[in-house]
Amino acid sequence: MLEVQGLAKSFGLQAIFKNFSLYLPQGRFTVLVGPSGCGKSTLFDCLTGMVCPDQGRIVWQGNATAHLGGVAAYMQQKDMLLPWLTLGENALLPVQAKPRALKNMKQAKEKLARIFEKIGLTGFQTHYPDQVSGGMRQRCALARTLMFDRDLVLLDEPLSALDAITRRELQGLLLMLQKEFGKTVLMITHDIEEALTLADDIILLGSAPMAILERFQPRASKPRDFSLPEFMDIKARILSRLLTEKEKIQG
């Protein structure tokens, strides 16, 4: 499990968060929802080592670490595929980048072939990123995320650059894969319905400084039906809180 304890970060005089704590239970899909500019991205920057927090600890499986390099898999809005590698080579990068990885290469390739089959990329291994569509590229990024072979997965708005239909498809894939591989997932999204589709826990964040306003644990099993009153209720509550928060920022 992942614990963030008393994290603080400010840029100049502006405190992004003070004494922020977060607890991620093992094997659950946690989604962070909050107004834009509330500091979600800075939190991810701290977790991934892009930014050094002023205070606080990151604890993974009982051990404090500076950041989650070598611990977490990571996927973001941009597909981040290297243009000089094929889709297959791109997805294999997490295996290749590890020291002394070459002896695992054969197994890794077999695993990749299975993943590519699951997410509908079979036959595109030898294509280059700019020869396929944006949806295909993001699928490949998803395959690469799985090839990290880590128990913890950080998703930074991974689907927000996609069109509605492709996004729906990839949400389905994310769910299937999380169930199958049993990962602990932390995801940022702006899309409340996406949060409701995927999350075991939804954490609603307030801004300036960032803090947890409310936690939701939708009870219905996945895949979910949005017409359930429970969802309409949670969605309405999240929306109204977000609007108040937004007024607070602008006010």
């Binding site: 080592g49 390099g69 980048a97």
Partner: peptide
């Protein structure tokens, strides 16, 4: 791109590995 650097750091790649797979190309 620093985002690529982050991706490779998270993969657990050290400087020389990043040089070979990312910076050099």
């Amino acid at each position: 791109d620093p985002d690529f650097r982050r991706l490779f750091t998270l993969m657990g790649a050290g400087f020389w590995m990043k040089l070979r797979l990312l910076y050099w190309p």
